[in-house]
Nucleic acid binder design. Sequence first.
DNA 1: ATTACTGCAAAAGATTTGCACTAGG
DNA 2: CCTAGTGCAAATCTTTTGCAGTAAT
Lengths: 168, 168
Amino acid sequence: MPRSRATAEGLVRTLVGALRESGLRLTPQRTAVCEALARREDHPTAQTLYQELKPVVSSLSLTTVYQTLDSLVRTGTITSLGSAGDDSIHFEVNTEPHINLACLTCHRIRDLESAAVRDLEREVQAAVGSKVLSGRVVYYSECLETSIPRDCPYYPAREDAREVIHDR
Amino acid sequence: MPRSRATAEGLVRTLVGALRESGLRLTPQRTAVCEALARREDHPTAQTLYQELKPVVSSLSLTTVYQTLDSLVRTGTITSLGSAGDDSIHFEVNTEPHINLACLTCHRIRDLESAAVRDLEREVQAAVGSKVLSGRVVYYSECLETSIPRDCPYYPAREDAREVIHDR
DNA sequence: ATTACTGCAAAAGATTTGCACTAGG
DNA sequence: CCTAGTGCAAATCTTTTGCAGTAAT
C-alpha cells in the first residue's frame, strides 16, 4: 500500500522537526534528504538517496547524505537496518515494530506486520537495564531457491528497479 | 552460561560436518576456524578469529577466515549478525531462535532467550512464499546513556579488549 | 557576525579478487 | 594426479575525515 500524501507530509515534518529539536541547522540539503526519505516506500541506502537527489539538488554531496542519515538515526526517527546481502546500509523510516524481510536476490526489503514483534520490544526492554535504543528484526529469503526467480516478491531483481516497486 | 566441553565438541563436529557435506575439503585452516567458533562464547568477527588463530595456526590468512565463514553461513550452521556499532560483521554460532542484544559501547552481543522469537520464525515463514534462509533479531542498547559505563551489562570489557576499543 | 554545515579529496577499513603455489582426496 | 584451497597483495567499495570555503540563525 502506497503511502498517502498526508502521511508523507507528516513524515517530513517529523524528520525535519527531529533535526531542529536536536539543535541542528535547517539546510536545503538536509531538508531534501528528509523529503526523499518521507517520499520513498523502500529502504534506501545513502548511495541510493544521493543518486536520486543529486540531479535535483546539485549542491548535495554524499558526505552530507551520510551525515544527515546519521543525525536522523541518532534522533531515533529512522533506523539503520544493516546490509541486505549487498554491502551497504539500508535505512528504515517506519519506526513501528515490524519484521523486515530482505531478499538476497534483489537486496530489497519488505515490511511485514507482526504482533509478535511488539511483544519482543517489551521482552527486550524488560530484560535489560540500560535503555534499548533501536532494534531490527530482519529475515533473509533466497528467492533463487524456488528455482523460479519470478517467485521473488520483488522480481525482477535488477539494481535499478528500486523506484518501480512500492510494497512497503 | 559457559558452553560445556561436550557441547563445544559437538559443535565442532556439526560445523566440520557441514563443510564436508557441502563437498568442501577438510583443511587444517578450516578446521581451526570451526574449532575457534565452537570454543568461543561470543560473536566474533573475521578479524577477531584471525587474530586469535594466527599465532597458533601460522599458515592462516584472513582471506581463508572470510571464505570459511562464508561457507558456513551458506550451509546454515552459523549466522551473520551484521554490525554491532563497529563496522564489521559479527557471526553467531547459536542457531536457536533468540534475541541478540548488541551493546553500542563495547560492541559485544549478548543472547537472550525468547519465546516470542520462536513465534516470529513461524510468522515469517507463513507469510512468505520463498524459503526463509536465516534471520536475525538484534536490538541495540546504548550503555553510555547511563553516564556510568559500568552499567554496561558486559562491563568490564576485559579479555577481548581488542573488540572493545575501536570506535571508528 | 558566529560557527555549524558543506563539498571535495583523501583516508580508512572491511571484505573481495587475481594469481601462482600447495596440498587434500 | 587434479583441482580445490591457500596466502599474499592489490583492488573494491562503502563510509569517514580533514580542511577551507559557505551559509543558517
